[in-house]
Design a protein around this nucleic acid. Structure first.
Lengths: 342, 342
DNA sequence: CTGAAAGCGCTAACAG
DNA sequence: CTGTTAGCGCTTTCAG
């Protein structure tokens, strides 16, 4: 017969000799001022003694607030996301919120279902990392007034707060670095054209090579189907077929760069002697690769933290103007870039 | 004036011309049988049309079930966990459950607070990956009847279902592999003595070297303070100081093995020519290291999935006997192991 | 098979 | 400052 029913607010009130409403006021920091300081103290002590824990479902039912937000990511298994999620949680927790994570696997159907699930769980807002450039669902959610923040990517033409890397600046740094090393024929394996990061980096690359009088042959730019190792490998094989004289690669992200490593191994290309590569994101453990990958670092945890803060703001003040932030990047030079063999 | 209040069960009932109770029965698969098939169909159609979504808070308030479980992990940023979490979510979701993740950073205080948080959120059970050998909190939770499953590690002397790798078998495979290559002086950098995996692997290592007539000098076994790269590096430096003639290392896990790589770099040791290393866990991207790490692979997602299944069972039938499963491992031979230079 | 009534635990007016 | 009252949306007896 153990399992002493967890005490309810009534129990606390009874034990403290007050009405449940008073106990409620005393226990809630926001309304504690309405209560005699002495009574409040007593109630709190009793609550503590009984091991009282408010039931958020009951509270939520009354207040229509769940204390949860949804985190919509493609796949937790992609090393880019854990640090972001961690940053988010670190901000949500002290604010009394929890995050519910869902994985969409980049499948729009699944995304739709997962977001439905989150909404049915009464999440108060959404942090979305799966945005596509053209994303009707996001637009619809926004119209319905769901507080939202986009992370890493953002849809076109909707006024949703977002926190994204400064893709153009990053690509310029990468191209500058390679040009400084002496590279003239630089290729770009861009991310899917359906994502903002994909097109922004691609456009930035085109501009950068043009401005620096490097080889602007369109064949040097190949678009990957996905942000994956496999897609990166396929793209590089294709590029090498049409432009075997390329000496350096700017990869759309680190996973695509890893795909390049696979092709190097398979074709016996010596990186960085025969071919340089730059990644994007600075995922964990890149410094342990052979060779360690030169890449653009973004402050993952800070992104997450900032996104969570923005979302909490949006929840608190639903109709404040959407603020969007562009993250500064830094180039981390490691072993995968070197002067070309001329 | 948009934001049409999300429809409630009452709305559905009204629209279908039935009592809310009937609508409730019709919508819940478990009670649908109690309702005229025709009525049920009608109610469901109306619900669908209205875009009705049951409010889990209201339901939970009534049924004392939240449809959530807590996932207690040290740090999501540790690459071991995302695949496990993914495996868990993949089982929870179709069952109508969601997971709430908390990070403890291996801090008992924080763990306690986080578990309180989860309990106050009315989680129906816990999947715990932070178990220590001596873990009063776990024992207490078990006494209180909280459904729980341990993952990866397990406390001593409490009868809690767990799903852990077959540490002994794994270490034997590692030692066999090294012995077959010709190594006689094998070191072990074990995990903390406070964790089941730490002591089990350490004990297994001792037995393995004894049984194979290899060097059994206790100085060849060094215990790391933490399961981290840094701790691994420190331990290896210490080992090299006392036994510079060691030719191979069995690391307590992959992160500790990565610490070894750092020391190799710092002391100019050529791995695998001068020193072999075996890791444990087969984290992602180990195959891209220089050299690719030989390690023991565990089926991460499956662990997670199995743990979730066990927890759902425990929630459904609270007093069924605790079942524990030992996971088979496989040795993945890559480039970090080779015959010793004799 | 369906309706009526009650209540899960909490908060929010509204009185006092 | 505190008690009363009502009700969030749903499920679950209990009658009919």
């Amino acid at each position: 017969m153990p399992a002493v029913q967890t005490p309810t607010l009534r129990d606390v009130a009874d034990a403290a000799g007050v009405h449940p409403a008073t106990a409620s006021r005393a226990l809630n920091p926001a309304t504690r001022g309405l209560v005699n300081a002495e009574t409040a103290r007593r109630v709190m002590k009793v609550a503590e003694g009984l091991g009282y824990r408010p039931n958020p479902m009951a509270r939520g039912l009354k207040t229509a607030k769940s204390g949860t937000v949804g985190l919509v990511i493609p796949d937790l298994t992609n090393p880019l996301f854990p640090p972001i999620v961690r940053g988010i949680e670190d901000v949500l927790e002290p604010a009394g919120y929890s995050g519910l994570i869902v994985n969409t696997d980049n499948d729009p159907q699944r995304e739709h279902a997962q977001i439905e699930l989150l909404r049915s769980r009464q999440v108060e807002g959404l942090i979305v990392a799966t945005a596509l450039l053209d994303h009707p669902l996001m637009a619809k959610l926004q119209r319905e007034g769901v507080p939202m923040v986009m992370v890493n990517r953002r849809p076109d033409g909707v006024d949703i707060p977002s926190i994204t890397p400064d893709d153009a600046a990053g690509i310029e740094m990468a191209v500058d670095h390679l040009a400084d090393l002496g590279h003239r024929r630089i290729g770009h394996l861009s991310g899917p054209a359906t994502t903002s990061t994909g097109v922004a980096r691609r456009r930035a690359f085109r501009n950068a090579v043009r401005d620096r009088d490097l080889d602007v042959d369109p064949a040097l730019v190949v678009t990957c189907e996905h942000w994956t190792e496999e897609a990166g490998a396929i793209a590089l094989r294709h590029l090498l077929d049409v432009r075997p004289d390329v000496t350096a690669i700017v990869a759309g992200n680190d996973l695509i760069a890893l795909g390049c490593y696979d092709v190097f191994a398979e074709r016996g290309i010596d990186c960085p002697r025969e071919m340089s590569v730059v990644g994007f994101n600075d995922m964990p453990f890149l410094d342990k690769l052979a060779p360690p990958l030169t890449t653009l670092a973004i402050p993952h945890q800070q992104i997450g933290a900032e996104a969570a803060r923005m979302l909490l703001d949006a929840i608190a003040e639903p109709d404040r103007a959407a603020r969007s932030v562009l993250l500064p990047l830094s180039l981390v030079v490691r072993g995968s870039t070197a002067p070309p063999v001329t």
